[in-house]
């Protein structure tokens, strides 16, 4: 019996493997579809005529194809373009500065001859265990630092992420120490080693952490909600949130009070706006996915 088993395996999958694969395909397909479906509905709705949505609700494929929503949206594009600009500016400056500070700090903390490295690492780590909470940060920012309506209020909170710092440190620790030693013999100082050796040697780690920082900044609406009241300084996500909730409020009001609708952005326009805000992420997603996997994996190894 045992003698024949491997041979049979080589020709044909055992029943249990077939069962596993069939069940696996079903489960993964189901979950993948659930993950994708909302995006499909969103894009489809943004290309559907308002009449078709009002008549029969959302559908998988546009019932009546129309680009009216986008045309309406871009008839007066200044708000959207400005919000794009704000988001782009914050994302760019925040992630570049954040990446620089994080990698520089990570390099220092990876130096075995730095005497207080454990204490300093714990100084950073402790902030993940205990926090003063939203209220005191808010009071600090608004009352003591005067950051209301200041872009710094959107950049500072996400700048030094301790989790990314630890991932970066474990990456730099993996670079062979001999490279740094020989540079030192050639007379290079620590800053030079960091700028000329560490940065070029860690491009893939930088890309990984950079991706996470970019996502953090691009998707942030929370800090804008707390600190921004000037409409002209809203980043894209918060602008979207405001337009959506304002138009929903108007729509609800006009329904309950049965007044005629006063120029409420149509449902299709709201969907088009959501697509416009998500667009950049969906476009770059295929190219950055592997960095995402890498970042999470590196973080997981560290625990």
């Amino acid at each position: 019996m045992k003698l024949f088993q491997p041979r049979r395996n080589a020709i044909k999958m055992p029943a249990s493997t077939v069962v596993f694969n069939v069940a696996g395909y079903l489960l993964l397909s189901f979950f993948a579809i659930i993950c994708l479906l909302p995006f499909v509905f969103l894009i489809s709705a943004s290309f559907t005529s308002e009449k078709a949505i009002a008549l029969s609700g959302f559908s998988l494929i546009p019932k009546e194809f129309s680009t009216d929503a986008y045309r309406l949206l871009f008839r007066n594009p200044t708000d959207i373009l400005r919000a794009y600009g704000v988001s782009g500016m914050i994302t760019l400056s925040g992630s570049v500065v954040g990446l620089f500070i994080i990698s520089m700090t990570a390099y220092v903390l990876s130096r075995p001859y730095l005497r207080y490295r454990y204490q300093i690492t714990f100084y950073f780590y402790f902030t993940t265990l205990f926090s003063g909470g939203l209220l005191s940060v808010y009071i600090l920012f608004v009352r003591y630092l005067g950051l209301k309506n200041n872009y710094l209020a959107l950049i500072l909170p996400l700048l030094v992420n301790v989790f990314y710092l630890l991932i970066m440190r474990s990456f730099i620790t993996a670079i062979p120490e001999s490279i740094f030693e020989s540079a030192k013999i050639d007379g290079a100082g620590e800053l030079t080693i960091f700028l000329r050796l560490v940065l070029p040697l860690s491009t893939s780690a930088l890309a990984t952490i950079g991706l996470f920082l970019i996502l953090d900044y691009w998707n942030d609406w929370y800090h804008a909600m707390l600190y921004m009241s000037d409409y002209k300084k809203f980043p894209l996500q918060y602008m979207l949130y405001n337009l959506l909730s304002a138009s929903e409020a108007i729509a609800r009001l006009s329904r309950t009070a049965s007044i005629s609708v006063v120029e409420v952005p149509s449902r299709a326009v709201r969907m088009a706006m959501t697509v416009v805000a998500t667009g950049p992420i969906l476009l770059v997603y295929p190219f950055v996915q592997r960095y995402f996997v890498k970042g999470v994996t590196l973080g997981a190894v560290k625990g």
Binding site: T105, L109, G132, S136, E190, L191
Partner: peptide
């Protein structure tokens, strides 16, 4: 080289802790 991160964390994380 550590200073920027140490100061930022002091300002953004440790200072608010007193606020509790």
């Amino acid at each position: 080289m550590l200073l920027p991160a140490v100061l930022l964390v002091l300002l953004l994380n440790y200072l608010p802790m007193a606020g509790i």
